[in-house]
Design a binder for these strands. Structure first.
Lengths: 158, 158
DNA sequence: TATGATCGTTCATAGTATGAACAAATTACA
DNA sequence: TGTAATTTGTTCATACTATGAACGATCATA
């Protein structure tokens, strides 16, 4: 019984290191992808992320963008300054409330956002095509399992 | 047959979006963890990563650290300046080659690195304990599958 | 019509990261 | 042995990511 526990402990230790390493590699891959997209689309990644928000909605406020991007409002102001000076977006004052700025994309901005969406769909699609049907389903369900576990552990840590 | 393809197409489309979302959530969790560790250990994350490199080796060069961290040498110089002014590390000139600086940790630095290692082992261990034995094995093998797919897709993109 | 809340901006600050230019040291070779 | 080429780490200019405090303008409300 002691032996049994020890073997299980060894196993768990090995799995722990393996998990740490694989997660690090996956995150690295994702960071590389961000860099790649940044170069490919000629914009800093934070600006690309901001453009993508407008695929779902026509108008957004600074506050709304800050919440969706999970950054401070002042950060959003900067991002929008850059997007606007490059003519990807516009600011107009909300006619119903002069405190609020309604942000929207120019046609140039919308085109960029669409291209980025297509690109991202393509690479995630390719990822799935690297697997067979059975693997696809299993990868997805086990990723979800991992995400759930991560969120549970995060709760324990606060 | 047409129907069949269309249904498969739908399915693939759905899976693509799901994959994108789950990966984004997992990466977000990892970023949160980095922030948490940064606060908990009172050092910028880049400096923590640097400390961790010395768990395997007693001495490292600037060039070696740059390769392991995958950043420019000038970045390493900055990180080391900070670690050294906080007395976590030291620079000595290689007696065999005066161009080379041998970097090592002070006892204070080693202690910090050990604490960080313990913490990371703990949280990855907890992650595994959120699952049963079967799930653990499957999560690991499917993460590896995903990583392999990611690397394959990355190759296609260069 | 005061006052309290909300909204977006400005500013100071810090962290992450690169690449060009450079000085010092070493290696290679003619 | 002396010179050219290479290696090593640093400095500096630049850019990107991000926060939080302070602030002015505007709005809701009492």
């Amino acid at each position: 019984m002691n032996d049994h526990n020890e073997i299980n402990g060894e196993m768990l230790n090995y799995q722990t290191m393996r998990l740490r390493d694989i997660i690090a590699e996956i995150v690295q891959c994702c960071d590389d992808r961000k860099l790649y997209e940044s170069r490919k689309f000629g914009l800093p990644y934070s600006e690309l992320k901001c453009l993508m928000l407008f695929l779902g909605e026509r108008y957004l406020t600074v506050k709304g963008i800050a919440e969706k991007l999970d950054v401070a409002k002042s950060r959003v102001t900067t991002i929008l300054d850059r997007l606007i000076e490059k003519r990807f977006a516009e600011r107009i004052v909300d006619p119903k409330d002069a405190r609020i700025k309604l942000i929207s994309l120019t046609p140039k901005g919308k085109k960029k956002a669409e291209q980025l969406k297509d690109h991202q769909r393509k690479i995630h699609g390719r990822l799935l095509l690297e697997m067979n049907n059975e693997e696809r389903k299993n990868v997805l369900s086990h990723l979800e399992l991992l995400r759930t576990a991560m969120e549970a552990v995060k709760e324990q840590m606060v």
